[in-house]
Design a protein around this nucleic acid. Sequence first.
DNA 1: GCATGATCATGC
DNA 2: GCATGATCATGC
Length: 500
Amino acid sequence: MSCDTDLPYDAQNCTDILQYAEKLVSKTFAEVLEESLLRTDFSDEVEYYDSSQSKGGLGNLLEKYYFMYEPNSLSQADFPDAGVELKVTPYERTKKGLRAGERLVISMIPNTEAIAEDFKDNFHLQSKLSKILMIWYLRERKTDNTLVKKRTEYRIDFVNLYDLYSEVCKKDLAIIREDYRKIAEKIIAGKAHELSESDTTYLGACTKGASAKKSLQPQWYNKNVLAKRRAFSLKQSYMTYVLNHYVVTGQMSYDSICTEEELQDSPFESQVINKISVYKGKTEEWLYRHFDLYRGKVAKQKNQLLVCRMLGVRTDNTEEFQKANIAVKTIRVQRNGRPKESMSFPKIRIGDFVRQEFEASYEYTYFSETRFLFVVFQETETGEYVLQGAKFWNMPITDLEGGGREDWQRYKEKFLAGVSFDIQSGKNGAIRVRNDLPKKTETNIFHLRPHSAKSAYVIQGVRYGNGRDSDMDSLPDGNKMTNQCFWLNNDYIAKIICDI
DNA sequence: GCATGATCATGC
DNA sequence: GCATGATCATGC
């Protein structure tokens, strides 16, 4: 490759590649085309890269017109002599700050050959992952989620060289190695069909292929069971961290749970569990006093705050949890062994819900990508609650795609068929509106129930409840009902946490 | 005693 | 004003 002396940069030198790439900042993709083609009419090229046929096209555009090499899908790195991979990736601005727009897909997980057990022996993946030239552009959306601009009109805002083996990424590397081990272990055990993105922390096994069903293929280690084609990827949540921590510095501050030394000793998850286990058997009252949290002052999320204190961090905006999309959930278990309550999730928008397919739904995405840290408080004989322990959990893909899909589908069908209501007036004139949606007892994993400040209905044009307009949501038939959300069934939760 | 509907409390 | 976590309250 050293014969490419006509390149405007030294393709063997990653510092030089980065310096050249940094000149892209504040240019749109169309401007890159214009400068490269040296002509005023480049509408054919613009049209091509704006069209949906050029999937991954913005990367190809830069390869061809800025870095001056022909895009290929060879398995070697984009800049082979420097060992650098080029990735063009979107980010978005939200109320909470900058956020990566997508996961970063690294390379396909093979299904026609063996896979290395250890990350250090998977040279192909390492070549694609260890040095990545990341080119970030702002992707804007309107409130209805549609895109604001054509692709070539996007502007490049940041350029950075991600180096997994650098000093700053040392802790990340330890976790990625562990993630890799988990994924490879499942594949080698012939359980590639049970892989889920939420199995792991930073490195995920995401599905690949237009429709997941089409991509079902035999496994190398289990020829009789088909599995979806998957790819190694850096999870979106981790990419958000990379953006805020390594790319745009000083944007967001994170607390760290584990030190580098701790991570060398044992994996992140056992570190967390150990830190919490120190306080096993202590009552909530004892913990509030110990951590100087007065019950009255921290009514909301007080046990969440306790978890932060036990982990030695100030806020729940911790480095590892943000990076790993881990949701901390505290659960209070009654004397009879059942969690007091089911667990709520964001409200649904019925209009959107009935138009979605399960595998593209918010619920599917959430449960396939989110890892939970359950922290359990158990009620004692005297009615106090003591810390029982904690565990990491993610919904097994078999539950999600089995019972979960069934539950979800039934609600969708019922909404489309029409919901009936029964208005009851109880004591002191309070109105209670019952509906005929599937009940919790009829579901496997989650059920739908109201979640709003107040109740509010419009049934056959008549208004019920004392809520506001914003407390209700429209049904396909024109009636309105109190906002609903999915709740993870408490008896399902009971089974998950019974081994804590 | 539990399911189901209703609502509170807080932080952004 | 709303999202979110947490919990209450009624009636079967």
